[in-house]
């Protein structure tokens, strides 16, 4: 039990570090760096707990991104920065790069390498399932990040108390 929690914490901390790395690449203000780390840590924690309970990866990403979106609203008031500045780097570790890469690799071996028709069918399945998983994760990340504005029907969080 304790071992599971520790490995969960380790993975979440590394998600936080990954998000901070991207935040520095995107040149965010210095005072937002700790916020990005905490948001990405929380999001990673939620996502990997849900994955541990065999939840679907799309639903897990949606829940984690919604946490980032909702938590970024009070934080934006506290550190006086627009929420996108720390919400986008915090969800970057959840970008489905792995699925994108699997999709394109399957497409390339479908075209260049495989000649056997039964193996081509397997590759076809891989292209579709990975490609659509990637699309749906991207959409759920976007919805999660913009959730407060979508729910409250406002174009800025500045006037929401």
């Amino acid at each position: 039990m304790i071992e599971t929690v520790l490995s969960l914490l380790e993975v979440s901390i590394w998600s936080g570090i990954a998000a901070v790395g991207f935040a520095i690449l995107f040149n965010i203000p210095k005072k937002a760096i700790i916020t990005v780390f905490l948001l990405a840590f929380g999001a990673g924690f939620i996502k990997f707990i849900l994955l541990g309970f065999h939840s679907n990866i799309i639903l897990a990403s949606l829940t984690a991104a919604s946490f980032v979106g909702l938590a970024s609203m009070p934080l934006a008031h506290r550190i006086h920065l627009p929420p996108v500045v720390f919400a986008i780097p915090a969800v970057i570790p959840m970008i489905p790069g792995y699925f994108a890469y699997e999709t394109v690799l399957s497409i390339m071996s479908f075209i260049f390498i495989e000649v056997d028709i039964s193996k081509k069918t397997i590759l076809m399945q891989a292209i579709f399932s990975n490609g659509f998983t990637m699309l749906f994760i991207l959409i759920s990340l976007t919805i999660g990040v913009s959730l407060p504005l979508l729910l409250l029907r406002k174009s800025t969080v500045k006037k929401i108390n």
């Binding site: 380790e10 590394w14 570090i17 990954a18 901070v20 790395g21 991207f22 520095i24 040149n27």
Partner: peptide, 23 residues
Amino acid sequence: KRYPRYIVLIAVSFSGAGFCNIF
């Protein structure tokens, strides 16, 4: 000003290591 180039290099490399841990 942007962050200095070597800081960006090191920070992004740490995120690469972080992704590797996640996977």
